[in-house]
């Protein structure tokens, strides 16, 4: 089976100032490679500053790739820009860490969820109907379409953010610390929702789940990558990685929570 998302030798260097003239460079991600199979849920864990979020930003092209290639569904999207990149967002979506901040404070949740639908030529009315369906699918009621992000709780807002992400039926969903800002009980509900969506979509939905919470990754993911200082230090089945960590960093990471 062909991987739906394939990342090869992905590297990110953040430049500050001019190199060679007192400028500094931070190598946030160093030669990362992985493949995400259809229907798979791949976890990426690591401490803050390990480059996890940079990976998400590079794949969604919110930041430029320094080196390496990103293949989505067999297409090279590494250097895509403008309207050709906009087409890619039909297959690739992301759920952000801060649910409330991920919605425009001056627009209703419904307008935010329907934005991608309207951008793809759906009429205002049809998009409104679709938004209601999406909200119900994500465990909210239709009334949430008319609410503003500050009027709802973090968990409800994250449900709306998931509704927005799945509105275009993406093949790949990136969850960048999607549950980290929520309290534990709500976290569980969101994971439940993601699990439901995966079950419904079968092989149609692959998830890249970025988190610093090993226990959550163990529960939810089929496979896990452990990142440390921009590199993958270990990967494999989450149960095995946790039970028999090979890398010294992974050992420390697991010891610190148990």
């Amino acid at each position: 089976m062909e991987p739906v998302l394939k990342v090869e030798n992905l590297t990110k260097v953040y430049q500050r100032g001019t190199p060679g003239k007192g400028g500094t460079a931070v190598n946030a991600v160093r030669g990362l490679s992985f493949a995400l199979m259809p229907g798979e849920c791949l976890g990426i864990i690591g401490e803050s500053g390990s480059g996890k979020s940079t990976v998400a930003k590079m794949i969604t092209r919110l930041t430029d790739v320094t080196e390496g290639t990103i293949l989505l569904d067999g297409e090279d999207i590494t250097r895509r820009r403008g309207s050709r990149m906009r087409d890619v967002y039909q297959k690739l979506q992301m759920v952000f860490q801060m649910p409330v901040e991920s919605f425009d404070p001056r627009q209703t949740l419904g307008s935010g969820i329907g934005e991608s639908l309207r951008n793809r030529g759906m009429g205002r009315k049809a998009a409104g109907e679709e938004v209601k369906k999406l909200l119900l699918m994500c465990g909210l009621t239709e009334e949430f379409a008319g609410k503003y992000p500050h009027e709802v709780s973090g968990g409800q807002c994250q449900r709306a953010a998931i509704a927005r992400a799945i509105a275009v039926r993406p093949k790949v969903l990136i969850c960048d610390e999607a549950t980290s800002a929520l309290d534990v009980t709500v976290q569980k509900e969101i994971i439940q929702l993601l699990n439901d969506l995966r079950r419904k979509q079968g092989d149609g939905l692959s998830i890249l789940f970025i988190s610093h919470d090993i226990a959550l990754v163990q529960q939810f993911c089929d496979r896990v990558l452990v990142m440390y200082h921009g590199e993958v230090v270990e990967q494999g089945n989450p149960d095995e990685v946790i039970a028999h960590p090979q890398d010294p960093y992974t050992k420390r990471l697991i010891e610190s929570i148990l």
Partner: peptide, 17 residues
């Protein structure tokens, strides 16, 4: 650099929009 603008990018809105 706010998240909602990044979310708008992912929703397929053009820069002008």
């Amino acid at each position: 650099e706010t998240t909602y603008l990044q979310a708008a990018v992912l929703s397929g809105s053009s820069t002008g929009k």
